[in-house]
Simulated scan of single mutants.
Amino acid sequence: MSLVGGKWKMHILFWLWKREILRYGELKRELGKVTHKMLSNQLKELEAHDLIVRKEYPQVPPKVEYSLSPKGLTLMPVLETLCSWGKEHITNDERAVVILSRS
C-alpha cells in the first residue's frame, strides 16, 4: 500500500490507465488542484517503484510522456477492486464530503 499511498498516486495511476499516455500538462489538468511540486514528486516516486514509465523526447520545448509500466498494469485490477469496494460501502455523508472536496 505504501507504493500507492497518499492523496495523488492512485489518481495518477487511474488517469494513466484510462488514457494510456499523458503528457505532464494533461495529467496536471486532469488532477485539478495538485501543485507542480506535489505532482512532480509523486511521478518520481511512481517511476522509482517501476509503476509508471517516463519517456522524454529530445526536442525544444521538451516533451515528456507518462504511461503505466507492465508492473503498473498488474496493479490495476487491485485498484479497480478497491474502487468497487469503496462504492459499495460509502455512506451518504461520506459521498457528500467527496462531492464537496471536488468543487
Rank of each mutant, 00 (worst) to 15 (best):
L3E: 13
G5N: 09
K7S: 14
K7Y: 13
W8L: 11
K9T: 06
M10A: 14
H11G: 11
H11A: 15
I12N: 03
L13T: 02
F14I: 08
F14N: 09
L16H: 05
L16C: 02
L16Q: 04
W17V: 00
W17T: 10
R19P: 00
E20W: 06
E20P: 00
I21K: 10
I21L: 04
Y24A: 00
L27G: 00
L27D: 05
K28F: 04
K28H: 07
R29S: 15
R29V: 11
R29W: 11
R29L: 11
E30Y: 12
V34L: 08
V34W: 02
T35N: 02
K37A: 07
L39T: 04
L39A: 01
L43S: 02
K44F: 07
E45Q: 12
E45L: 09
E47I: 05
H49R: 10
H49F: 14
H49L: 04
D50L: 08
I52W: 09
E56I: 07
Y57T: 15
P58Q: 02
Q59Y: 08
Q59S: 05
V60I: 10
P62Q: 02
K63S: 02
V64C: 10
Y66G: 00
Y66P: 00
S67G: 03
S69W: 08
S69A: 04
K71H: 07
K71P: 06
T74M: 06
T74C: 01
L75Q: 07
L75R: 07
L75V: 14
M76Y: 06
E80W: 15
T81Q: 15
S84C: 12
S84H: 14
G86L: 04
K87A: 12
I90H: 09
I90M: 15
T91S: 14
T91Q: 06
N92M: 07
D93G: 10
R95H: 07
R95Y: 08
V97P: 00
L100P: 03
S103Q: 13
